[in-house]
Structures are given as structure tokens and as C-alpha cells.
Design a protein around this nucleic acid. Structure first.
Lengths: 207, 207, 207, 207
DNA sequence: GATGAATGAGCGTTCATTCAT
DNA sequence: AATGAATGAACGCTCATTCAT
């Protein structure tokens, strides 16, 4: 167990608070509308205080976004039902994702619709960090799909590609709502996505 | 035919030029990096001139984005192969979409990864315009899918939903490249997307 | 003759105005107390305007200092009495220097007592520019001294070194006033400096 | 002997330590680059501690500068060779000054090239303190010169004025190096300065 | 109509100073 | 007495917008 001094605990707490405030501001005003002033006000802290914990605005926003995504991904991982047979495990995963996404709507709204944090040039440390976070998540999804392939429950598909497509389908469902294209509760899409992803669209005549 | 005065023609021409310049700047510098100065320079026009044709920066950028998307969608519409049987028509559509997307990468990069133009509050006129542009496009895609359903080539799916999912899968493929997650040419994804969309992932035992 | 457009003339005029305002602010508040806001106010111009003519604060201040010194040095050069015999020429030069210095007291006060503009690292372009401006001035002074050496009016001294010392003695006299060490009018020092510089302190017994 | 409580001794010790740390930081980073943070770090002390011993930054820096100069002047006084005949005494003084200056280059660099501590308004207590420190030093130098005058070794010069000029010549030599105008070791200038100060520049024909 | 010089609100950041512990 | 986290005024700089020419 990591032993922490009281100061270190407090510091970590402050950092977390600031990142949460940043995420709230991002959710409310978008990335473009997120200023140090607003984050400071949201965190009930003076402007200068932020610079005691983050070296600049970009650092703060990156950390806030990164941690936001990481906690969502961690939650996904934790709720993986490896005990279930592959298809049930996949269904549980998809349902879980929809749950997680719908509890993080505000933050994801800005992230999906405006994020410029993944556009960093190749070689940029922060961009790479986000990319690899995402890549690891995709690898995890691919693992689930691969287990279905190995069990001959899936035809011989490319798990990486399909993991990415499945993810896009799910985030797409959220995006559809965030854009105001539909108003039905997002959870209802889970079954539709699963159905499409599993069975496709083509009729199987004479099956 | 609408009769236009010489002035109106000139005005329309200027507007078009400015929007094109804006789109080039967006493609090159992203939304955040798009300043009135840069657009003016790109359009070989003085800064103040822009304000003769657009009431402010947001107006210009919205119009530029709107027109950019509209021309892509128009092109899609024009190349619709209603003469082909539904599945072939769909294949042609998907291939066409990948072509169109890959010829507009720079602009779409900014649009997908950074755009905040779709986040406008409900009631915002410009947001509504973009929304309905997109909705119409989805309706068009749904029409294609519906023709397959009616021909009993597709099982009984929700064409609207599937149209949205198909669109997300395609834009997802572009996004994957823009994020630097894969480096293969985007056109190669067309068949993969079609295959997944049509057949799903589940093995059809005993078929 | 250089032909200038009306715009170029105006631009040069503005630049000159801004540099003069900067010099006045420097004279009044010192370098440390010179802010862009104050210069803008002094020049009756908005803050942003300064950045149309200078790329940043350092640029402005350097230019202001450089031009301030250059015009003093130019004036010195212009009033050089090459027509007089060496010692008379030197006397005229010293008197002239005292005049010039006393008409630029405010600016020189900051420059002598606070200047950090000559401390730039070797290789820094602006520091070099100032250094070579000063070096050229010293060379000019050395020329005068050298003419006296060649005429055997001076003993065999090092003109470069003595030029520097003479300059220091003169600026020292100004500094003495700026520091408030003495209050007599600075012009009175001219003869004293000349006397010391020419004859030294040692008594010439039996002469 | 002044009797001091243990606390007073400690306090004095702390004050001295802080001033020394300040001087080191000034020498390393210049006045502009001297922050309370840096001084605190250099003194291995918390930021707030400084304010227990100095009421503000200006106080600290002034005290540090004052003490720095005072110790140099004290050293000068201590090494005065009253036992030697006037001209030898003066020669020893000049040599000693060059020694002292060259062992305090870092600090003097900042002081000569950047200091604004002497520009304080008339009436300012700190400015006055520095002024009178300097005046006393000049008086001391004048004493030496006066002894030469009285011994008829010097012609009838103004000892105060010449003391100031001699001082300026010596600091000028250091300044010349700090500005990077020459690179020769500073001690070599001692003889040149003495020669010029004593004999002046004019040839003494037929003497 | 077209220009581009001028504007000034607003931003990110620094740092001397305070004060609860 | 000593700390250092917290503060917020002040700075340099950007850029959308205006308006006299």
C-alpha cells in the first residue's frame, strides 16, 4: 500500500477537485468556452491556485479529459462479465457501456462534439496518452469479440475492426441524442445496436 | 428562373469565395486556428470586407460549414444509382461515400474532431439548419435501406436507425484515420463496413 | 531619394510616435515601470495598436532605446568640428556631449541607472545592435583622440582606451547629477573633465 | 560591547543569510529575475519566513544591495595604506579596488547594468541610505587625493570631483567588460587608469 | 463597395503578499 | 517562529469588430 503524507493526500484531493470542476465547465460551456476563470470559479478557488497544481491550461484540460475517460474505461473493465459465455458477456458489455455513457453525458457531449484533444500532432505526449488509452480500450473490446470467434459463435471477422465499429455504433447512439436528432432514452438503443452488430441487415432466406 | 441583378450575382460570388476560403483555412488550421485575418488573406480581401457579407465570424463559419456539408450531400444524392437493384445500389452508395469523404479529409478532420457547430442550443437557428441538413441526408440513406427491406433483401429492420448506424460506421472509419489509429487507405474499409453491416458478426451455423 | 507611399509615411510617423511615448514613459517610470498600458496611454492609442507596429514589448523598448541613443550619437557626429585643430575639436566635442546629454536627461536617467538592455546574452541580435552602436561611437571618439596623437599634441596613449574613459567621465558627470550627488548645472563639469583628461592630476614641477 | 539576547543573535544571523541568498540570486538571475521564491529556495527557507525578517521584497533587495556595497567599501577602507606616501597609497588603493571589483563581478554586473535602487525619489529613505554610503566612500577617496594635493604631488585639483572621476573610471573598466566590449582581464586596466588619471593625455613638450 | 488602422474586452500566466496551521 | 497553500492584482498579448477614408 502506498503510504501518503497528509500533504500528498490533500494535493491529490485538490487536483481531483480541479479536474472535476474543469469537466463540469467543459460540459457546460464546451472546450472553447472553458476559461481558467470559469474553472477557478467553479472550483471555488482563486485563479492563481490552479497554477499550483497544473502548469498551464492545456495541462489541466488534458488531465481532466484523460481522467474522465480513464475512469469510464476502468468502470467498463471492472464490470466485465468474464464468467458469462461470450455472447452474454458481449450483451452485458454493450448494456454496461450505454449505462456508463448516459451517466457521463455532459462531459461526453463536449468531448464528442468538440474535442480537439485528440488532434495533437504525432509525437505530442498528451495526444499519444489519449490515443493509447483509447487503443487499450479497443483492444479490450476486441478481446471479448475474439472470445466469441474462438468459440465459433462469430464468423471469422477482424476483431479489431469490429471492436472499433461496435464502439462507434455505441458512441454514435449517444451522439444522436446529443445532437438532438432523437429524444428517446439512450438505453433503448442497446438492443438495436446488438441486433444490428450481431445479425446484420440481410435477410437469411430459407434459414 | 430567378432573375438576378448584376450586383446580386457579384454578391453571391463573393459569398461563395469567402466560404471557400474559410473552408480552406479551417482545413489547414482547424476551427480554433481560423481567424478573420486568415480567411481575409486566403480570400485576397480586406478584413472589413468580410463583414459586408457576413454579420460576424460565427455566421461566416457556420455558412462555410453548412455549404461544405451540403455540397458533399448533394454529390451523394446526384450519384445515387436508382437504376441498380437495392443491394448494388447500397454498395455503390457506400463506396461513393468513402470517395467523397476521402476527398474532403482536411475539412472533415476539423469538422469531426473540433467542430462545435452542432452543439448550439435548441432553438438556435444555425444549429437547426445543420440538424435538418443532416436529417435529410439520413432520410435519403434510409430510403435506400427501405428499398432493400421492401424487396425482402433485408430483414425487417428500422431503416432510420440503420441508416444512422451505417453513416456512423462510415464516418467512424474516417475518424479512425484522422486520429491516427490506423494508417491503411480509407477506401479499403468500404468492403469491411458493408460486410459487417449486411451480415453482422454471428456465425450462421448449418447454413 | 526614397519614394514613400502615404501609408509608409504614416506608419513611420506612428512608429516614431510610439517610440517617443515609450521613451517618455521610460524616463518617467523607469524600465521596470514601463508597461504597454502606460505607453499606449502616453501615445493616446489603444493597447492593441502598439502591436500593429511592434511585435512585442521587448521590440518596442529596444527600438525606442536604440533610436534614442542613435539620434544622440548622430547629433554628436553632425556637430564634429573637423575644421578645428585637434585640441579645439576635442573641447568642442566634450562641450557638445554635455549639451546633448543634458537635453536628454529623462531618458538617459533610466538608461544609465536601470538599463538591462545591454545585458543580453552574446548572440542576441538586439544586444549586439546596441553594442555595435556604442562601439562605433567609441571609435569615433577615438578618431578625435588619434588626431591629437598624430599631431603630437597628446603623448602616446591608447586612443580606444582613452576614448572609453573620456566617455565614462562624461556620462559619470551626468550620473552624478541623476543620483542627486551634486546639484550644480551639468555643463559646468565640461571644463573640469577636459582639464583632468588632458592634464591629469600630477603636478609638473619645474615646468 | 552590545549585549544581545539569543533571539537577537539568531535574528541577525537569519537576516544575514537571507541577504546573502538574495545577493547570490541577484548575481545569477539579475534583479528582474530575482523572485521571493528563488531567494527562499536559495536560503533553504519557506517563502513566508522572509516576511518575518523583511517587510517586503524591496526591503530585502535594498538591504542585500546595501550590505553588499558596504562590505566592499569596508574592505576598501581596511586595506588603506596610510603608511605609504600619497602616490603609493593611491596606487595601492586603485589596485585594491580592481581586485575587489573583480571578486564581486556577478553581483556588480546586476548592480551596474540593471539596478534601479539608486533612482529612488529624493526623500526616499533607502535611496538616501545608498547615497550617503556612496558619498562617504567618495569622501574617503577624496581624502587620499587630498593628501597628495597637500604634499604638492598633485596640482591644485578639486579632490571631490577627481575622486568621483577616478571612481567612475574604475567602475567604467568593469562595465566595459560586463558589456562584453573588451575581454582582457580587468586587472590590466589598473595601470592604464592610474596613468591617465595622473598624467592626463597632453604631451609635455620640452619638460 | 472596399479598405485596413484602430479598438478594447478578454485571455493565460506570474508573483508579491497574506494567514491559518 | 516557521510554513507554504492560497490569493488576486497586474501584466503581455490576441483578435473579432468597427468606422473614417
Amino acid at each position: 500500500m502506498a503510504v501518503m503524507t497528509k500533504e500528498a493526500v490533500l494535493k491529490e484531493y485538490r487536483i481531483r477537485e480541479l479536474m472535476e470542476a474543469a469537466r463540469r465547465v467543459i460540459g457546460r460551456h464546451g472546450f472553447e468556452g472553458t476559461t481558467i476563470d470559469r474553472v477557478a470559479e467553479e472550483a471555488h478557488v482563486a485563479k492563481g491556485t490552479i497554477y499550483l497544481y497544473f502548469s498551464n491550461k492545456e495541462d489541466l484540460l488534458h488531465a481532466a479529459v484523460f481522467e474522465g475517460l480513464r475512469s469510464m474505461i476502468d468502470e467498463t473493465r471492472r464490470s466485465d462479465r468474464t464468467d458469462l459465455p461470450p455472447l452474454e458477456r458481449l450483451r452485458a458489455f454493450v448494456k454496461g457501456q450505454f449505462e456508463i455513457q448516459s451517466s457521463n453525458q455532459d462531459f461526453l457531449k463536449a468531448f464528442f462534439l468538440e474535442s480537439k484533444f485528440v488532434t495533437f500532432e504525432p509525437g505530442d505526449e498528451r495526444g499519444e496518452a489519449l490515443r493509447s488509452l483509447y487503443t487499450e480500450h479497443l483492444d479490450f473490446v476486441a478481446t471479448i469479440l475474439d472470445s466469441a470467434v474462438r468459440a465459433h459463435l462469430f464468423r471469422s471477422i477482424d476483431p479489431q475492426f469490429c471492436a472499433y465499429m461496435l464502439t462507434e455504433m455505441m458512441t454514435g447512439c449517444l451522439r444522436r441524442r446529443l445532437l438532438g436528432l432523437v429524444e428517446t432514452p439512450i438505453r433503448e438503443d442497446a438492443e438495436l445496436v446488438l441486433d444490428l452488430f450481431l445479425r446484420g441487415t440481410v435477410a437469411t432466406h430459407g434459414a
